[in-house]
Design a protein around this nucleic acid. Structure first.
Length: 853
RNA sequence: GGGCGAGUGGCGGAAUUGGCAGACGCACGGCGCUUAAGACGCCGUGUCCGUAAGGACGUGUGGGUUCGAUUCCCACCUCGCCCCCCA
């Protein structure tokens, strides 16, 4: 800690030296420079040896994609995290608050294509710019631990992760349907598809089958779902979203034998009890049966036209509320597993290949979609469930409720739950099905035909097949020299030196995998790398990681509620099962902050409503921007930015600074109070009078602000601080003694409470108050019990629930005293005169309610 | 269609467990300071009636529970977000 610095530095230059000569204010610029120099010299934000820390707090903001300029909406995230980190530090924790860059990704590559600038240079430039902005905000990260996912020393371990997954059979290669733009000749992420068209060129996107790499996240579906219950300190909303995404449902798997085919059609249903009501099967256009029929030329000519139309419509209508159901009878017949009767197989657009098996048994009487389809195409409808009371299937709509089975032979009379079991048992006995749990979650497609990502560390050998790159050869370095113009293959194909390598197994000629790893993999483990960012022998130091994780507080946008947070949980679980770490969840407490809007819209460059922090910081100072950002509303909710509101925050800081300057410089209260033998009152706090009232008020507000901070109610913590400063001003305006020790104490408490929120100003104020150590390391205040004490208590008196009077009673008065005092009140006595009092409710410490008959 | 939120002054919002609705700030109005403007300071500011004292009403709508409801329950309306033919 630096103890020697120029104590007068912050007093130079009073306000007003900004562009607006008339503006009163405070010397925020000098304060910022002084405070930031001080933090940096003291290495305040640096963790040092992670194993040395006893009381630990890992506070993490989601690392950003370095897209360039940050706006005030981004700032909210980091200011919030910084405030929490600073709070925890003052509360005595050793805090780890690192920052890094999710630096691989598409925008860099698009910039390369558009502006002829290499993604690496573009990314580096943006990182430098954003780092400057973090500094300008006074956000304190441990920059000695900075990481960037596009550095070979980082992505080497992303590749290592891939190899470990591959070894355990959790990474595999398979054919899959992907979004394809025929004009750009490239695969698109779902996010890049806008209204069915390529976001860049507007060409209609089509689905195309490609060999892709997958991570087997479905193997962890159960534990990802079950462990959500351990995440008590996550927002309910996020847990629900993840549970829905995983989408567990119980039912049965049923196989229908296909006439003339060896492979049966397998369907999943949650209502096996309705099996006897099934009158047809429907399959998705991409279903293997359809593919097979096409290959064998068994489809009529009009079928091709139908499939083509479906495919196009699927893409175009992906955002439509409801699409008209369409079908095509394949002519194929399957056998009902229980009755043996033939059922037609239709292709329909309402069956999705991405869910279940891509085939359904259709029960028109008991599923609305099937009902609409059967009605349209004249397919028979058979009622098999009848409710105990109320209306069942009536012919105008499907009945989807529960009841007793009918028209189902020996199953008739069974209730829905019994029926499900009985039918499933019958199927199992025949070898035509069994009970089954189905998940909506699909395996994670991680290959990208893109340049700016970590190369998948695999080699394709003509003789040995797919061979992993040996661990010792990592990283597989991404070459600089490639052609960026999209061709349908990864740009890496264009670099022959990269592409052609000897096979690690047989040394024969082989080709590198040219796809890169989805950047979501990069960001699924970075929080562990921060503990040992330069380690060259492993992705992370297991001891340090086991000591510091799970992350105590994770902060980020709710838009990551599903993918990033689910993937991170998955990777952590796998690493635990592989024995690398000892914990199974990455983030103990999650906070998802709301968006900042402007004119009712999300801030974005395209909308032109971005509020840049730079000019605001220039004009009002970083602390004003920080304070307003926190004051704008509850951090978890969206909030509307209002430039006028910034003025209010500035005015407050100016008033606060004036208060600090007006406090006579004597010894700091904390030092006097720490003198031997001095009790709380021995340094001269008044026992009664305005100074006593001020002190009580200050400590009440301290209590409120401490609670608010702990509960993330930073908006009300700011308002509490405003009230604290106001109460000192009111005291002085009423003729209170500025030299009173209560004023000094208030100034000191206010400064420490302000330190996490407006750190530069608080740092300077602390110095003005005569302290030599940084306020960032001062102890967090707590209210003094004796300061909160009061001889009397004001209670509310209601008559019939309506506020009528206030009465003053001695603190701790018993119910009878309170009751008598209330009834004796002049106004209350008038109101109750001549009326019968039916009841008197006394809530000690709060109110009295007199109920008249 | 399903899930999750949210509806409080002119605006952002406050109200730990059911207990003084509108804290704090913005904006606005008045006054002071100023030649003036700005900045700053003081006062006022939910609606209606009233000169005032005071009173009535009031947290999306309707009902309920309660001595007491912004808070709990039921129904409805509106808005936002997410997943969307999930079998």
């Amino acid at each position: 800690m630096s103890e020697t610095h120029d104590a007068t530095s912050v007093n130079h230059g009073r306000a007003g030296e900004t562009e607006e000569g008339s503006r009163a204010g405070y010397p925020f610029r000098a304060l910022e420079e002084c405070a930031q120099r001080r933090w940096s010299e003291a290495h305040l934000f640096e963790l040092g040896d992670p194993m040395a820390a006893e009381k630990r707090f890992y506070c993490l903001n989601m690392f950003p994609y370095p897209s360039g300029d940050l706006h005030v909406g981004h700032g909210r995230n980091y200011i919030l995290g910084d405030a929490i980190a600073r709070l925890k530090r003052m509360q005595g924790y050793t805090v780890l608050s690192p920052m890094g860059w999710d630096a691989f990704g598409l925008p860099a590559e698009n910039a390369a294509i558009l502006n002829q600038i290499h993604p690496a240079i573009w990314t580096k430039r943006n990182i430098a710019r954003m780092k400057e902005q973090f500094h300008a905000w006074g956000v304190g990260f441990d920059w000695t631990r900075e990481i960037s996912s596009c550095d070979p020393e980082y992505y080497r371990w992303t590749q290592w992760l891939f190899l470990k997954f591959y070894e355990k059979g959790l990474a595999y290669r398979a054919k899959g349907a992907v979004n394809w733009c025929s004009s750009c000749q490239t695969v698109l992420a779902n996010e890049q598809v806008e209204a069915g068209a390529c976001e860049r060129c507007g060409t209609a996107v089509v689905m195309r089958d490609l060999e892709q790499w997958y991570f087997k996240i479905t193997a962890y579906a159960d534990s990802l779902l079950d462990d959500l219950s351990l995440l008590r300190e996550w927002p309910e909303k996020v847990r629900v979203m993840q549970a829905n995404w995983i989408g567990r449902s119980e039912g049965a798997s049923i196989r229908f034998a296909v006439a003339g085919e060896a492979a049966p059609i397998e369907v999943f249903t949650t209502r096996p009890d309705t099996l006897l009501g099934a009158t047809y099967l429907a399959v998705a256009a991409e279903h293997p049966l359809v593919v097979r029929l096409r290959e064998q030329g068994k489809l009529q000519a009009d079928a091709e036209a139908f499939l083509d139309r479906l495919k196009r419509a699927r893409v175009e209508n992906r955002f439509a509320i409801e699409t008209e159901k369409e079908g095509y009878d394949t002519g194929v017949r399957v056998t009902h597993p229980l009755t043996g009767s033939p059922l037609p197989v239709w292709i329909s657009n309402y069956v999705l290949m991405g869910y279940g098996t891509g085939a359904i048994m259709a029960v028109p009487a008991h599923d609305q979609r099937d009902f609409e389809f059967a009605t349209k195409y004249g397919i028979p409808i058979v009622e098999v469930v009848r409710p105990g009371s109320g209306d069942g299937f009536a012919g105008s709509a499907a009945f989807e409720g529960e009841g007793r089975m009918v028209n189902s032979g020996s199953f008739d009379g069974l209730a829905t739950e019994e029926g499900k079991r009985a039918v499933t048992d019958a199927l199992t006995a025949k070898g035509a099905g069994e009970s089954r749990v189905n998940f909506r979650l699909r395996d994670w497609l991680i290959s990208r035909q893109r340049y700016w990502g970590a190369p998948i560390p695999m080699i394709h050998c003509e003789t040995c097949g797919v061979v992993p790159v040996p661990e010792k050869d990592l990283p597989v370095v991404l070459p600089d020299q490639v052609a960026f113009k999209p061709t349908g293959e990864s740009p890496l194909v264009t670099n022959k030196a990269f592409l052609n390598v000897p096979c690690p197994k047989c040394s024969g000629s082989a080709r590198r995998e040219t796809d890169t790893i989805d950047t979501f993999v990069d960001s699924s483990w970075y929080f562990m790398r921060f503990l040992s960012p330069r380690l060259e022998t492993a992705p992370f130091d297991s001891d340090a990681v086991n000591r510091w994780l799970p992350v105590n507080q994770y902060i980020g946008g709710v838009e990551h509620a599903i993918l990033h947070l689910l993937y991170s949980r998955f990777i952590v679980k796998v690493l635990r099962d592989l024995g690398f770490i000892s914990f199974g969840e990455p983030f103990e407490r999650l906070f998802t902050q709301g968006m900042i809007t402007k004119d009712g819209n999300k801030m974005s460059k395209s909308k032109g409503n971005v509020v840049a922090p730079d000019t605001l910081i220039q004009r009002y100072g970083a602390d004003t921007v920080r304070l307003y950002t926190l004051f704008i509303g509850p951090p978890e909710k969206d909030a509307e930015w209002n430039d006028r509101g910034v003025e209010g925050a500035y005015r407050f800081l100016t008033r606060y600074w004036k208060m600090i300057e007006d406090v006579p410089v004597t010894q700091p209260v904390s030092q006097v109070a720490a003198a031997p033998g001095s009790g709380p009152f021995s340094i001269g706090f008044a026992a009664t009078g305005p100074a006593r009232d001020l002190r009580r008020r200050v400590h009440q507000l301290t209590q409120q602000i401490c609670d608010d901070m702990d509960r993330f109610h930073l908006n009300t913590a700011v308002s509490g601080l405003m009230q604290l400063v106001n109460s000192v001003q009111d005291y002085l305006a009423a003729g209170g003694d500025p030299a009173a020790v209560e004023v000094r104490e208030a100034a000191e408490i206010a400064t420490r409470l302000l330190a996490p929120l407006a750190p530069h100003t608080a740092e300077g104020a602390w110095e003005v108050l005569g302290h030599t150590k940084s306020v960032a390391l001062a102890s967090w205040p707590s209210p003094a019990a004796e300061a909160l004490e009061s001889a009397t208590k004001s209670l509310v008196v209601q008559v019939n629930g309506k506020l009528r009077a206030h009465v003053l009673v001695p603190a701790g008065a018993d119910q009878e005293t309170i009751r008598r005092t209330a009834l004796a009140d002049e106004k209350i006595a008038m109101m109750t005169e001549g009326k019968k009092v039916a009841q008197v409710i006394v809530v000690p410490g709060r109110l009295v309610n007199i109920v008249l008959e």
